[in-house]
């Protein structure tokens, strides 16, 4: 695949006897990539390896084609990072802190850059207040500002919208999208809030137990996973579910309210079978439709449970 910014091949990482990453093959092209998985699935370890903070036990990891451990300085020079934990010098004002960070990146026009970023993330009103007085949402905004300082080629954001009120989340997501559209900044966003990713991501990576269970462009994944889920409304859902469960074309059946859901492995045959079965059971088939895949459904199918 062309234009891949992040690529890992058979990446391994163990902490003592615990295997954190197990032959991880991950790719992220240009654009906004979502990185999802359960707690402890290996997301933060992967990010640590990409930043050169953690050394892998095997395999390769590259960002911009550079080795993540040996060339980590060059990678970090071209990348902004927002970690999940927000530890900033509490006695500094937000502006003073960003000026320090801007100097580390060697930015020439420091004050205009910092002021613009503060305005973009909506922190201008608190720029002179000590960071220790900031709320959780303000910490996140500050974190995003320091990750975007100097318009990096790529920014890795770990849980950027956690603990932020709905309006703040919308603003942050809009800022991320704007940065990508206006400056071409690429993003890798690790989060549990799937609805946030749905709004902005074009590429999705799903990790579970240290392995990539699936990855690809959002529309492809949506198509791939939605095609196999059906929602059926019949007059007697219980009887209908018990019957279709026995079909070879059906992998899984469940009932939600008065609707029957099923995952099938051969949609073409299943499409023909359903009306026949309903007729045979003398049930009224009220509706019968393929589900439009949401990110939550994709996640549920690949990882096997709701996101935590």
């Amino acid at each position: 695949m062309e234009d891949q910014i992040i690529k890992t091949t058979n990446l391994m990482k163990t902490f003592g006897k615990v295997t954190a990453l197990n032959d991880l093959n991950m790719q992220a092209p240009k654009g906004i990539s979502g990185f999802i998985g359960k707690n402890g699935s290996g997301k933060t370890t992967t990010i640590g390896i990409l930043l050169g903070l953690i050394q892998s036990n095997g395999g390769t990891a590259t960002v911009f084609g550079l080795d993540c451990w040996h060339d980590s300085f060059e990678i970090r020079r071209r990348m902004g990072v927002m970690h999940e934990t927000n530890v900033y010098p509490g006695s500094f004002s937000g502006q003073r802190f960003l000026v320090h960070v801007a100097k580390l990146y060697g930015i020439s026009q420091i004050n205009p850059t910092v002021n613009e970023l503060l305005k973009d993330v909506g922190l201008t009103y608190a720029q002179d207040k000590p960071i220790k007085t900031y709320s959780a949402g303000m910490f996140k905004r500050l974190g995003l500002a320091q990750a975007l300082i100097g318009s990096p080629e790529m920014a890795i954001l770990d849980e950027p919208t956690a603990n932020i009120d709905p309006l703040g989340r919308i603003t942050l997501l809009k800022k991320i999208k704007d940065m990508h559209e206006k400056h071409g900044t690429n993003f890798l966003i690790s989060t549990h809030i799937l609805s946030d990713l749905e709004k902005i991501c074009n590429w999705l990576i799903i990790i579970d137990q240290g392995k990539i269970v699936d990855q690809g462009y959002m529309n492809n994944l949506t198509e791939k996973y939605s095609a196999s889920i059906y929602k059926i409304e019949v007059s007697n859902p219980q009887v209908f579910a018990e019957t279709i469960q026995k079909l070879d074309t059906v992998d899984k059946v469940w009932i939600e309210g008065d609707k029957v859901f099923c995952k099938v492995n051969n949609p073409e045959v299943f499409n023909e079978d359903i009306p026949k079965i309903a007729s045979k059971l003398k049930l009224r088939l009220k509706s019968f439709q393929q589900m439009l895949g949401t990110l939550e459904e994709i996640y549920t199918q690949t990882v096997g449970e709701k996101p935590t």
Partner: peptide, 17 residues
């Protein structure tokens, strides 16, 4: 302290040696 709280992680994520 900075290792435990994650401050060092943040600093080492900047372009510093």
């Amino acid at each position: 302290g900075s290792l435990g709280k994650g401050e060092l992680k943040r600093i080492l994520s900047y372009p510093v040696k």
